[in-house]
Design a protein around this nucleic acid. Structure first.
Lengths: 215, 215
DNA sequence: GACGGATGTTATGAAATTGTAATGAAAATA
DNA sequence: TATTTTCATTACAATTTCATAACATCCGTC
């Protein structure tokens, strides 16, 4: 579930898109011109913007230039290569050409959301599947019971996979910023994870530093 | 500049893609079937894979299922919506439909690389790659196991490459400021590095002073 | 080439770090 | 409140690192 801003001046299309994306579980905010879009981006801080290029007033390209880190799927009626490249060059995460099928749009929305990790769904490796939204972990299809701390630790390790994480960093992220506990606590929890999930090899010890999740 | 794996069994297309992406500054490794692709993914650890769906042996979909963290742009001749959705659902970062224009492919490659660009803080020379963020060192693609002191020493040498470092300076930086140990300790660690990485020539001895990493 | 000091090489035991299991306190749940 | 779960800490075992020493080899100077 994510908050989406749908920017399209054609009312029926905007409605249709909103309806379909709401059906797959997202919150949709419609905008019908560039100025309105910019104001809603500020006030609502959406997770993803679906942006029509051809807009009254400010064009979709202009809006994209003003954006920073919000992912954008950009919609164009033109099938010209130039426009598509221009969109990607400006930093769009994807584009889709009108007329498009709803199934494709929703698939692309999910793909972009997955990428941007704002709406992290699941992550799988070996015989393990981690479901971030339900905070469940499955090993060989069976539910593995992790405590909150264990799950947060696993989450942190996965989100920083192939990076060495110091015990201090782990404490800071999984525990509180100003937590003044023993760094050995981290060790014990790492052992728990290794034991419960049977992933001795995946969670590597970085001597004198901390741990690294390798995939 | 990134390392790309181009998986396509059609030789002319593979060549064309390699040529164009090399022109924009990437390193391209061609693969002509699924098995070869999987082996090259392991050995070369590419930054991005351009993956044709229709392959002899293992299909592109099968390969994608086996992957975890490597970004994929998937190429399909089929224009059917299902295939595209399937690709995105499997975790592809993008797809492109044959026949495609080179400009579009390179634009998409850049877009995906920009998105997935992690702070790949690495330094490479000869057959060695030093990854500072994961604290891993690879020799010929294989992990070389360095101790913390060895890694710190290597880090210091690289950061001061082509400069003569006195033993005192090295002790001060890699060990503690007020460390009062034998300077011979430095020697032993330098030998370890030379031995483990097989870089006798790169770490030069500066007689009566210390060492210098030459590149 | 011979000498003396500097560096290369290898081995070893101490020290530091991490793995493991247990314990009781704190927190969550009933 | 009683019961269960979570979790920080501890103690000890296992492992890894590393400083030092001892000897071999190299280098520059005479």
């Amino acid at each position: 579930m994510a908050k989406l801003l749908i920017v399209d001046d054609e009312l029926p299309i905007n409605r249709l898109v909103c309806k379909n994306l709401t059906l797959v579980g997202h919150e949709c905010i419609p905008a019908y011109d560039g100025v309105q879009a910019l104001s809603l981006i500020k006030s609502e801080q959406p997770d993803l913007i679906i942006l029509d290029v051809m807009l009254p007033g400010i064009s979709g390209f202009e809006i994209m230039k003003l954006l920073n880190s919000v992912p954008v799927i950009f919609v164009t009626a033109k099938t010209g290569l130039d426009d598509r490249i221009k969109g990607l060059a400006l930093g769009a995460d994807d584009y889709i050409v009108k007329p498009f099928e709803m199934a494709e749009l929703t698939a692309r929305v999910q793909a972009v959301l997955r990428r941007t990790k704002r709406d992290a769904d699941t992550f799988s490796f070996d015989d393990i599947t981690v479901d971030f939204s339900s905070r469940n972990v499955y090993k060989n299809g069976a539910l593995a019971v992790l405590t909150p701390k264990e799950f947060s630790l696993l989450e942190l390790l996965i989100n920083n996979r192939n990076l060495a994480l110091s015990r201090e960093k782990i404490l800071e992220k999984v525990w509180e910023y100003d937590y003044c506990g023993d760094t050995r606590t981290v060790d014990v929890h790492v052992q728990q994870l290794r034991h419960k999930l049977g992933i001795k090899d995946r969670i590597k010890t970085v001597f004198k530093v901390g741990y690294r999740f390798e995939i």
